[in-house]
Simulated scan of single mutants.
Amino acid sequence: MTFKLSALSLAHLKGVHPDLVKVVMRAIEITPVDFVVGEGLRSKEQQAKNVAKGVSTTMRSRHLDGHAVDILPIANGKPTYDWKFYFPLAKVFKQAALDVKIPVEWGGDWKTFKDGPHWQLPWAKYP
């Protein structure tokens, strides 16, 4: 089955670095798991709210400069935060990144504060 990004997902990619958009667009072409782009570029005000709520731990988020996206898998017709759906989607995104030759980091691979929806361009290559 072939999936397409919704108009809202495409809108959430506005302001996101073109290389990361390439990864997302390749991922939607090859994924067996439908997904939405939950968020891309984020304001400092929203980031401060996220830190206050405990859903983020830093004011240095890659979302602030368009170097990160949050991707939510679709299960039973709705976006989900259930980890069992993130692992197959992670394989897709890692393959998509290889296909377009753009390095990415997944928040699910972090040692602390694991963040399943989060994908970012690495600081070392994209300061």
Rank of each mutant, 00 (worst) to 15 (best):
M1Y: 04
F3P: 07
L5P: 11
A7N: 05
L8P: 00
S9I: 08
L10V: 09
L10F: 00
A11W: 01
A11F: 00
H12K: 15
L13V: 07
L13T: 07
K14E: 14
G15A: 05
V16W: 08
H17I: 09
H17Q: 12
H17V: 06
P18M: 03
P18A: 04
D19I: 07
D19C: 02
L20D: 12
K22L: 01
K22Y: 00
V23E: 14
V23W: 03
V24I: 11
M25G: 00
I28T: 12
I28M: 07
I30N: 12
I30D: 12
P32T: 11
P32D: 11
V33H: 07
V33E: 04
V33G: 00
V33A: 00
V33M: 04
F35V: 04
V36R: 06
V37Y: 00
G38S: 15
G38M: 13
E39W: 13
K44G: 04
Q47K: 01
A48T: 04
K49Q: 10
N50P: 01
V51R: 06
A52R: 10
A52E: 15
K53F: 07
K53H: 07
K53N: 09
V55N: 10
S56P: 00
T58M: 03
T58P: 05
T58H: 02
R60I: 02
R60W: 05
R60Q: 14
R60F: 09
G66I: 11
G66C: 06
H67M: 10
V69L: 08
D70G: 05
I74A: 05
G77M: 10
K78G: 00
T80Q: 11
W83A: 07
F85C: 02
F85W: 15
F85V: 01
F87E: 05
F87D: 02
F87S: 07
L89E: 12
L89V: 12
K91M: 04
K91Q: 10
F93L: 15
F93W: 04
Q95G: 01
V100N: 05
V100D: 06
K101H: 08
V104M: 06
E105R: 15
E105Y: 15
W106N: 07
G108M: 14
G108W: 13
F113P: 00
K114C: 07
G116M: 12
P117R: 13
H118P: 10
H118M: 11
H118E: 08
H118A: 11
W119V: 12
Q120K: 15
L121R: 08
L121Q: 13
L121G: 13
P122V: 09
P122W: 06
W123S: 10
W123R: 14
W123K: 15
